[in-house]
Nucleic acid binder design. Structure first.
Lengths: 107, 107
DNA sequence: TTTATATATTGTATATTTGCGATATACATT
DNA sequence: AATGTATATCGCAAATATACAATATATAAA
């Protein structure tokens, strides 16, 4: 997502930018699948959530570095939140942000 | 949005691809603003909808070719539908598709 | 302390996106 | 027919995205 650094039109609001940022994070099928997968797993924190480990890599058939990179994009927009325990980093879906995003599209 | 041509993981569904495609169209603030603007204007077809004319160009402060290109992306994913009358091409928002997109995110 | 595992980062090649001027096309008006 | 207006497309340069191997880092297990 590349945005002009100059004056962006007055008709483009801050909210438009926020919406675009989340949309951008969902603009790749792997990331959509990750969000969906996490939403299913993610009844409550600390239970059975995903990590970026070998299993996940094999499951999605992307390299570990690629997976990590996609997760990073989801983290940067706020959809994914992480919590590290021992060796593992667990990812949680911020359902409230997702809800906010959907509500922004109630046009 | 660049996707591997090879086997995409079984965990990435066709729906994930569809969601990503719409999300991709919304992954730029100008396009979000266009959708929002059209949704406001767009009570019913044939009334007061936008065209890609000079006014719109001035309003959003992007060049005509750039505007046209962004509109094209919105058309390609199906969010915008066009209807040409005389010199003018009017754009309509496919609210059903937008609704479908939002429902796909009810995780 | 060596070794293995989990995750993140860096470097790199390639593809795609973005923005715009220039040009093309199509219809309207003069 | 010539001119003007609305849109679309092309070609270019710069920015960004994608995928992955290699490497770094941190912790666990042996």
């Amino acid at each position: 997502m590349r945005i002009r650094t100059e004056i962006t039109s007055d008709y483009i609001t801050e909210e438009d930018h926020r919406v675009a940022k989340v949309a951008n994070a969902l603009a790749h099928p792997l990331r959509v699948a990750l969000v969906r997968y996490l939403a299913e797993k993610n009844g409550g924190r600390g239970t059975d959530n995903i990590t970026c480990n070998k299993d996940l890599v094999e499951m999605f058939d992307y390299s570990q570095s690629t997976m990590s990179q996609h997760v990073k994009i989801l983290k940067e927009c706020g959809l994914f939140v992480t919590e590290t325990k021992d060796k593992f980093t667990f990812y949680y879906l911020d359902k409230d942000l997702l809800k906010l995003f959907k509500n922004s599209l109630n046009l």
